Deep mutational scan, measured.
Amino acid sequence: WVPDSEAPNCMNCQVKFTFTKRRHHCRACGKVFCGVCCNRKCKLQYLEKEARVCVVCYETIS
């Protein structure tokens, strides 16, 4: 899990986070992404309901 303080930009597209461009943690890899790069949901083994995942993890999992 990457702390918010260590991620000033999206770890995929590099967009800078602001008050309106929020950070989202991928529940699969723990990296920090913008809403566009972390907009998929899928079922993870260790969680009961679907969770937010990044586009890279989504392609790997599904």
Score class of each variant (00 low, 15 high):
residue 1 W to T: 08
residue 1 W to E: 05
residue 1 W to G: 07
residue 2 V to P: 00
residue 2 V to D: 08
residue 3 P to D: 12
residue 3 P to N: 15
residue 3 P to A: 07
residue 3 P to V: 10
residue 3 P to H: 08
residue 4 D to R: 05
residue 4 D to S: 04
residue 5 S to A: 09
residue 5 S to L: 07
residue 6 E to D: 11
residue 6 E to P: 04
residue 7 A to Y: 05
residue 7 A to F: 03
residue 7 A to D: 06
residue 8 P to K: 10
residue 8 P to A: 12
residue 8 P to L: 14
residue 9 N to V: 13
residue 9 N to A: 11
residue 10 C to A: 01
residue 12 N to A: 14
residue 13 C to N: 01
residue 13 C to Y: 01
residue 16 K to T: 14
residue 16 K to L: 10
residue 16 K to S: 05
residue 17 F to R: 00
residue 18 T to S: 13
residue 19 F to N: 14
residue 19 F to I: 13
residue 20 T to K: 11
residue 20 T to C: 08
residue 21 K to C: 08
residue 22 R to C: 02
residue 22 R to I: 06
residue 22 R to S: 05
residue 24 H to S: 05
residue 24 H to W: 06
residue 24 H to P: 03
residue 24 H to Q: 03
residue 24 H to M: 13
residue 25 H to V: 07
residue 25 H to G: 07
residue 25 H to Q: 07
residue 25 H to I: 04
residue 26 C to W: 01
residue 26 C to P: 01
residue 26 C to S: 01
residue 26 C to D: 01
residue 27 R to T: 02
residue 27 R to C: 02
residue 27 R to W: 07
residue 28 A to M: 12
residue 29 C to Y: 01
residue 29 C to W: 00
residue 31 K to S: 13
residue 31 K to Y: 09
residue 31 K to C: 10
residue 31 K to I: 04
residue 32 V to E: 06
residue 32 V to L: 06
residue 34 C to W: 01
residue 35 G to T: 11
residue 35 G to C: 11
residue 35 G to K: 13
residue 35 G to M: 13
residue 35 G to A: 10
residue 36 V to T: 07
residue 39 N to R: 08
residue 40 R to F: 12
residue 40 R to T: 14
residue 41 K to H: 12
residue 41 K to D: 15
residue 42 C to D: 15
residue 43 K to Y: 15
residue 43 K to C: 14
residue 43 K to T: 14
residue 43 K to Q: 11
residue 44 L to P: 05
residue 46 Y to F: 07
residue 47 L to I: 07
residue 47 L to A: 14
residue 47 L to D: 12
residue 49 K to Q: 12
residue 49 K to R: 09
residue 49 K to P: 05
residue 50 E to M: 11
residue 50 E to V: 12
residue 50 E to S: 11
residue 51 A to E: 11
residue 51 A to I: 04
residue 51 A to W: 02
residue 51 A to L: 04
residue 52 R to V: 06
residue 52 R to F: 06
residue 53 V to K: 06
residue 53 V to S: 11
residue 54 C to S: 01
residue 54 C to F: 00
residue 55 V to T: 10
residue 56 V to R: 07
residue 56 V to I: 10
residue 57 C to G: 01
residue 58 Y to M: 04
residue 59 E to I: 06
residue 59 E to D: 08
residue 60 T to Q: 13
residue 60 T to E: 12
